[in-house]
Amino acid sequence: MRVSHAITLLILFLPGQSAMAAGVIKIGVFSPDGFKTGIHRWQPTAEYLQSRIPEKRFQMLPYQELAELEQDARRGKFDLVLTHPASYVRLEQQVGLVRLVSRAQRDQGQIHTHAATVIFTRADNDQLNSLADFTQTPFICTDEQDYNAWQLVQLELLRRQRDPARAFSRVDFAGNAEGVLRGVMAGDYPAGAMAARDFDRFLRQGRITPQAVRILEGNEMPGFPFRYSGALYPQWPLGALPDTPAPLRGAVTEALLAMPAGHPAGQAGDYAGWVESVHYQAVRPLLDKSLTQHVVERQLTVANLWLQQNRRSVLISVGVTLFVWLLLRLLGRLPQRRLHP
């Protein structure tokens, strides 16, 4: 770890000294590859911000678990948040996160602000030709937290009014794109998904050939360098907690928008720079789905508890109702006696 990294970490965790008193601005960042990788990748961005806003110290706090990052955001443990769009829309709804800027990527000489997934199968699999063909199909993906894979697969199904629980009999997570590629090409899974960027890398490396695979719902778009499935989605945003002072929000936004092309911070973070915040409406179906699932699961839980507590009464009521119905049926079949005067 560089000396500057160590100093900022020491300042952040000094006993009895708050970050605000030390002038430290904390940035929670989702880092699925772990804390050490997150520091290596994102601390140069914090140092760039400090060079532009010298009265403050900026410290990246990498979180490997998305749930932990979102929990600490709800608790107000930091000032700014860098996370993927599906996570951002949840925090926007739950804590009022404010968008500042969006990340830009450079791939094959093109700068873009999009993310995309590739859902693919082997070319010799004639059972799968579109997402409509997924019916209780085994599926493999990189990671449950992977925005460019599993999150976008769910969005593509939701756009088509398909429930992922009905489309797949099971979903296994390989941990990386390599595992997904092996699983599909070995025939262990009919289909899988990974980031469009990773799929293109395998093609360029000769790990797979265009003749050996078929991209489902394949699309191309000028300005985006990869072939992909379905639609394009926005890149990661940097947001501010609602209590973060407006002057600081403005200073951070201005500094990041002014970052020169090819700056070392961008190279370390594997991004091309920052652009004015884009809209994230396309990602909201994931939030709506999660809220709907929560309500349905809660209703089912309450109903199940009620049945358990009232099983005896329910059985007696059903038995009595059935008895009365059978009695009425029998009485209805009895011949009526005529009364003679």
Rank of each mutant, 00 (worst) to 15 (best):
Q93L: 02
D146Y: 03
E70Y: 00
R162F: 05
L305P: 00
E47L: 06
Q71D: 08
F78T: 02
P341L: 12
E55C: 00
K26C: 11
L100S: 06
Q59F: 05
A67I: 03
L14T: 13
I39M: 15
L330K: 10
H263L: 07
L69W: 04
T8F: 09
D172L: 08
Y63S: 00
L238D: 01
G223T: 07
P210V: 10
A231S: 06
G273W: 04
R74V: 02
Y189Q: 11
G28I: 02
R106N: 14
V278A: 11
A19R: 15
I119C: 04
W306D: 14
A73T: 09
A174H: 07
L330V: 12
L152I: 14
G23T: 08
G183E: 06
A193M: 13
M194I: 15
L80Y: 01
M194S: 13
A73P: 01
T253L: 08
Q267R: 15
Q127F: 01
P164V: 06
G187A: 13
F323M: 15
C141G: 14
Q336D: 03
V184W: 07
P285I: 03
R2D: 12
G16F: 14
D143A: 13
A104C: 06
C141Q: 05
T117K: 03
L14G: 04
D243Y: 04
P210W: 12
Q136R: 12
T37G: 03
S317V: 06
H40R: 10
G239F: 02
L69V: 01
V95C: 08
M259S: 04
E70M: 12
A6H: 04
P234G: 03
V29M: 10
H5K: 00
Q299N: 07
E47W: 02
Q154W: 01
V275I: 15
R103Q: 14
F168D: 02
A174D: 04
Q145P: 00
L181P: 04
R52G: 06
Y147L: 06
L100M: 08
D126R: 13
L307M: 14
A186K: 11
V295R: 14
T121A: 15
Q293N: 12
R204L: 15
P264F: 07
W236L: 06
P285R: 03
A167I: 01
V184F: 11
F120I: 08
I215C: 12
E276R: 15
E68W: 03
D172T: 10
M60S: 04
A258R: 13
A177K: 03
D270C: 05
H294P: 00
A193F: 14
G16H: 09
Q211D: 15
D163C: 02
A177F: 05
Q235I: 00
A67D: 12
T253N: 06
V283W: 07
A196H: 10
Q161R: 09
P62D: 03
L286C: 04
R204T: 15
S313W: 09
G34M: 08
A303R: 07
A6R: 09
G38E: 05
H114P: 01
R159K: 12
L9G: 02
L287E: 04
R106M: 12
L326C: 10
A240L: 05
A104W: 02
N304W: 10
E276P: 05
A149H: 09
T253Q: 15
Q309M: 10
L155C: 08
Q205G: 15
R197Q: 13
R75I: 00
G273C: 08
W150R: 06
Q17P: 00
G273A: 10
P341Q: 10
T8L: 11
L334E: 12
G206W: 11
Y147D: 03
